[in-house]
Amino acid sequence: MLICDKLYKRYAKNAPYAVEDLTLKVGEGEIFGFLGPNGAGKSTTIKMIVSLLNSDSGEVSLDGITAKDDPIAYKRLIGYVADEPQFYDKMSANEHLAFIGDLYRIPQDERTERISKLAVTLRLQDALDDEIGSFSHGMRQKLAIISALLPAPKLLVLDEPMVGLDPKASFEVKNLLKEFAKEGKIVFFSTHVLEVAQQLCTSLGIINEGKLIYHGTFEALQNERDESLEELFLELTEKS
């Protein structure tokens, strides 16, 4: 289970909190959608979860392991897809994946099997020997997803994963995330596309001005008032 416990983060001493008193739990098999307007604190939260940023106070734990106590074991459990995937452009996709495989010490036969399965699913198999510098944004996004899934993490964190993907690729990624969650693993992703959240998420959190203003299922939210997610989202974020 992923637990964020009373997370606080601000970027300067007297600046307002980018994330304030954020507490949430995401259990096995859940696909958690993290929603919020621009600058609400989504990326800051995600960076604290994947341990790219240290929180000012509070802690994140995954299956009882925290990044502070055992950073290596913690990182081993997480796969991360950034909003703008960055790669060493002169590497080929295969070289990059071999690099990730070596860092996570994935045996050769396992990695070959996983790479070919994921590459076929995301239709990237023909470009694996190409230099990443020649990739389009969508191809980079697909490669980032394959890289994140290659070490078979317990938690997959994605920051705006659907941006730049064509409808078919977007459909494939959604299926991939569903399958991943079915295996009893956790998906945590941020998005601006409310339809994606509605279709995909088993639970969602809405953040505004650094504070988590809703955490629960979409159904529970809709049961309170008979409105679309878009209307509920706008209402909640304006009210706060």
Binding site: Y88, D89, K90, M91, S92, N94, E95, L97, A98, F99, G101, D102, L103, R105, P107, Q108, R111, D129, D130, E131, S134
Partner: peptide, 30 residues
């Protein structure tokens, strides 16, 4: 874009330290 290069490199299993050295070497030649 025209210089899209395809290559079959050795992507066999290696120790993390060797993978990092290879990565740094690639950056050096980038």
């Amino acid at each position: 874009y025209r210089t899209k290069k395809r290559r079959k490199n050795n992507t066999g299993e290696q120790k993390p330290i060797v993978a990092l050295m290879k990565r740094d070497w690639t950056i050096l030649l980038s």
